[in-house]
Structures are given as C-alpha cells and as structure tokens.
Write a protein that binds this DNA or RNA. Structure first.
Length: 319
DNA sequence: GAGCCGTGGAA
DNA sequence: TTTCCAAGGCT
C-alpha cells in the first residue's frame, strides 16, 4: 500500500489541484455492498471452530491449510483432532513429518500436511513459536501463498488485506463485474478491484473479507446460486444483466481415474494405515501397471511424502 | 502460466 | 454413471 501523497520534495512546487481526478476511495456503488453483506454475515455466519476466539492464530492457520481445495464438512473432524494433538506450532514441529501426513488422513493433497509441518518448524525456529503477524513473514512460510497470507493476517490478527479466494472472486465477478465466473487465474484487475472495495477500518475490512467469502460459500455458489437469499441481489450486476452464461474457454475439468494422482493416493493410503515399514509387495497390490506404479512411488519419495528403506520397504518420513 | 497435486459428496 | 466442485500453492 503506497500513499497517494508522495510529493514531499520541499523545492517542488505544488501541482495544481485536479478536481477531475478520481478520488482514491471506493465508488459509491462499491461501498453499498458493505452494509448489506456485513448485515447478512451477522445473521448467517456459520459457527466454525476456527472462527472462535479460542482457536487463536495457529487454529486459523491450520484451518486455512486444510481448507485449501477441501470442503468445510470434511475438514471439521480432522481439524479438531489436529488441534487437540498439536495445540501449538512447537508441538507439531517436534513430531516427525510423517505423523502430520498420517493425521492428515483423507483430506487430499497431502503435500499440504508436509508444508504445514514445515511451517510449524519455521515458526518455532524463526518466530519464537508464534504465528507471525506480518503478511511478508507469513508468505515466506511453506504452503502459504498470497491468499493464505492475507487470510491469516486478516482473520487471526484483524488486519486490512484483500482476501481473494475463489468465493470472493466469484462474488465480485457477479456483483460488480457482471459475469458468471472469474477468470481461471487471479488477475491484476481483480486485485485492484478487491483493494478498492476494502473498508478503511481494519476490523471492518477483516469482517468484510470473512463475510464476502461466506456469501460465496453459502449463497453465491458456483452452481445453483440462491439469489433469493442474497443481500445484494438488487444491485448485482450479473443478475441485472439477466445472468448471462459464462462464454470464455471452458474451465478445465480435472480427470482423475487412471492418473498418477490416483495411484499416489492409493500408495499413500497403505502407508498411512501401516505402523511400521511397508514391504514393496504390499504397495505392488494397489496398482496393476508397474511403470505407472513405480513412477507414482518415485514421485512420492521425491516430494518427501515417503521414505525409502532398505530391501524395497517404505514408510512415512521420519525426518 | 499451464499443469500438477487427492478426495468424496452432490447433482 | 459422469461431471463438477471444494477457503490454493508450487514449479
């Protein structure tokens, strides 16, 4: 965030005022979104454990890792177990990374578990065991990108950040831009819009972030959006335009059956259930095709999700 | 920037 | 049954 008033050179003559220049505040139409969405959120926000005060920054951070591409309903039980077992970053950091992978269960994308463990180690080593407060510090942790850094800073510390997740991007695409879906990848225009919409007060901005996200998750959903329950339906650009269908290139559907990802999942499932080393023969049973099976296993080892032992045995990583 | 990385519920 | 989607990050 750079201040718009940077002309402080004493010898510089003050520029003539330019009344026609747009003021650096959100246009009126944008500001009108805040009140109804915040009001709706006060009424309809879900009571999720990571939103309670007791969750703390670590709870917020753990939930954000788990919620990356995974629905709330599947995260809930794993989150509770995780926080009971590792209530502080240092508790997780003291464990073998393989234990994090095991506790991750079937949430999917198990590299997230490895990264969360790595983040806990970094927090313990570099930040005295406390989840850092600054966006840049958060961004430097493994597994934390632009979204998660903004989310933790906003939700855990009440800071003012544009929190652009898939829900918010869809809400803005519809309510403001007037299209059904946002682009595949986040664009500079979306970031600019999100910043322009951010309330000035940090606490209000943090609530706005959570509220607009919740609206996308519960009402302005990807399919079967429920405009009848939407607090900004009357001013939604997409709805007012007659809800035109998305025209651009079709969003890539992710095929899964028969891919390396499926094989990796099957291999890791066996290793998660095992308490000791798993012999090669046990892994061979999960997939018939030996070339793909070997490639998938090699990939898991390369990712640090699996540790090779002597005599073709494998286990979850101890280090 | 496109492709890759899991899993399971709902339509 | 198939398709789509769910609070992304990394290379």
């Amino acid at each position: 965030m750079t201040a718009p008033t940077q002309n402080t050179a004493p010898s510089m003559p003050a520029p003539a005022p330019t009344p026609s220049e747009p003021a650096p505040v959100a246009p009126r139409a944008h500001q009108d979104l805040h009140t109804p969405v915040l009001g709706w959120f006060a009424q309809h926000a879900r009571d999720l454990p990571w939103r309670r005060q007791e969750a703390g920054p670590w709870g917020v951070m753990v939930s954000e890792f788990m919620l990356q591409q995974t629905p709330v309903s599947r995260v809930l039980p794993v989150y509770e177990q995780w926080m009971a077992r590792w209530p502080r970053p240092a508790d997780l950091a003291a464990e073998a990374p393989g234990e994090a992978v095991r506790a991750w269960g079937r949430l999917g994308y198990p590299r997230r578990a490895l990264r969360l463990h790595g983040a806990a180690v970094a927090i313990t080593e570099r930040h005295g065991g406390d989840v850092p407060t600054q966006h840049a510090q958060l961004l430097a942790l493994p597994g934390i990108g632009e979204y998660t850094a903004a989310a933790v800073a906003s939700f855990a510390y009440g800071q003012r950040h544009a929190v652009l997740d898939t829900n918010v991007r869809r809400v803005l695409a519809r309510a403001v831009t007037g299209v059904q879906y946002p682009p595949n990848a986040t664009t500079a225009a979306e970031r600019k819009l999100a910043r322009a919409l951010l309330p000035e007060d940090p606490g209000t901005a943090a609530r706005w972030a959570a509220a607009s996200m919740e609206l996308g998750a519960l009402v302005c959903t990807a399919k079967n959006e429920n405009c009848a329950r939407c607090p900004v339906a009357s001013q939604c650009a997409w709805r007012l335009a007659g809800k035109p269908e998305h025209d651009g290139p079709a969003r890539r559907g992710q095929t899964y059956a028969g891919t390396d990802r499926q094989v990796r999942g099957k291999l890791l499932a066996v290793l998660r259930e095992a308490t000791g080393p798993v012999p090669q023969a046990a892994l061979d049973r999960v997939w018939h095709e030996p070339v793909q099976r070997a490639r998938a296993l090699d990939g898991l080892v390369a990712d640090g999700l699996v540790e090779p032992l002597a005599h073709g045995a494998y286990r979850l990583p101890l280090t």
